[in-house]
Write a protein that binds this DNA or RNA. Structure first.
Ligand code: FES
Ligand code: FES
Lengths: 145, 145
DNA sequence: ATATATAAAGACCTTTATATCCTTTATTGG
DNA sequence: CCAATAAAGGATATAAAGGTCTTTATATAT
């Protein structure tokens, strides 16, 4: 198990793919996305459906339809994708599973775990959907394999 | 989903409980452990069986039997418990699910994610099983709720 | 030796995550 | 309007995680 669920991993990869692939105002279909991020097509369809309903990405049916990201969404943090799919637990939950992480009744790891968790949250909150577009176009970073 | 699996969370809590409860050379039974760390008893039994087979904790059958932690194991890092139960992925896997995290073919998050992951690994590698015994005895930290 | 306490082991069951497939609905170009 | 296209939605399948129960093995005390 990684830090995020598989669903979430696919979701992040797909959104970043869509974002850099549609800066020109075009749309991209599920087949291409799935192929390019190396994910099961129909499973990804479900994930994107969900993210679309939640407004993180946009979609259009019909010929020349597909998924895209509106300009304003390019500024949204990746944390929004994680929260939409996995919830907030990874950003606020106790590292060893206590039902509530708190200062008053802390688990042994609390002090240190909180730092890590906060660093993770900070990273995901200050990293935006559109931020990697150039690097993705250049090919200096990848979304598959 | 948290950073670790539920199995792993129970495992960590249980090992820390056993450690501080048996410094005097005694043993502690599964019923007490499960009650004190607030976990399902027979599920925890499976987990402890596994950790015992792997040598992270010790056990004895029969009257006055139970689980305990040998002195040398008190020095082992909590990372060993995580690795034994969840594997190493959380310490080395790609944050967005690429099959191999690498410098040569990095995902967009690689640079930042690696820092977080390393901080997590460092924390878990420098924190030992026995390290919280005093605090647990004092009651300044908790393993339940 | 026997009875008893306790963990080990294995067979199950339930829920959640992951994944596929098929039908419906919306959009577009002709 | 019509046919083609692509996402939405719903039903279902499969795998993995989470959890329970019963039986067996082993240690101890009497
Ligand atoms: S109580 Fe465990 S991380 Fe805060
Ligand atoms: S490649 Fe993704 S974290 Fe290293």
């Amino acid at each position: 198990m990684g830090v995020f669920s598989k669903t979430c991993e696919y979701g992040i990869r797909a959104v970043l793919y869509i974002a850099h692939r549609t800066i020109d105002g075009s749309r991209v279909g599920i087949k291409e996305i799935a192929a390019e991020i190396d994910s099961p097509e129909s499973f990804l369809a479900k994930i994107l459906q969900d993210l679309s309903r939640k407004g993180l990405i946009q979609s259009m049916k019909g010929p020349n339809g597909g998924f895209y990201v509106e300009a304003e969404n390019l500024q949204r943090p990746l944390a929004d994708i994680v929260t939409a799919i996995d919830g907030e637990e990874v950003f606020s939950g106790c590292g060893m599973g206590l039902t509530h992480c708190s200062e008053k009744n802390p688990c042994p790891l609390h002090k240190e775990f909180k730092k890590v968790r906060n660093q993770l949250a900070h990273m995901m909150n200050t990293t935006t959907i559109g931020q990697f577009n150039k690097e993705l176009l250049k090919g200096s970073v990848t979304l598959r394999k």
